[in-house]
Computed example of a mutant assay.
Amino acid sequence: MKVPALTLLAALALACSARAQEPCFADYKASRDNPLELQYGVAEIRGDCSPREAERELRPRLAADDWQLLEVISTFGEAGLEQRRESAGEYFLRY
Rank of each mutant, 00 (worst) to 15 (best):
R46T: 07
L6G: 10
R84S: 04
A64M: 02
S87D: 10
P35Q: 05
L36S: 15
P60Y: 04
R32Y: 05
Y95W: 10
E37P: 00
E86N: 02
G80S: 04
E44H: 10
E78A: 06
I45K: 07
Q21Y: 01
F25K: 05
S74Y: 02
V3G: 01
R46P: 00
A54W: 06
L14M: 12
V3R: 15
R19G: 07
M1S: 13
F92W: 08
Y28F: 15
V42F: 06
L81S: 03
Q68A: 12
A5R: 15
L93W: 11
C16A: 15
I45T: 08
A79L: 09
Q83P: 05
R61F: 04
E44W: 06
E53Q: 14
A5F: 13
C49T: 03
L6C: 09
K29R: 15
E86C: 02
L70W: 09
F25P: 05
L36Q: 15
L81C: 02
E78I: 02
P35D: 04
E22W: 04
P51N: 09
F25W: 08
W67I: 05
N34R: 15
Y95V: 06
L70C: 05
R56F: 07
E57L: 05
V42P: 10
Y28I: 04
A20R: 11
R56A: 14
D66W: 09
A63V: 09
E57I: 01
A18D: 13
Q83V: 03
I73F: 03
D33E: 15
T7I: 15
D66A: 13
A26C: 11
E90K: 12
P35T: 03
S74K: 13
E82V: 02
L36R: 15
R52L: 12
L14K: 07
R56G: 01
R84M: 01
R56Y: 08
E44F: 05
L58H: 05
G47W: 03
L6I: 11
Y28P: 02
S74T: 10
E82R: 07
E90S: 12
G89T: 04
R52A: 14
T7R: 14
L38S: 15
E71G: 00
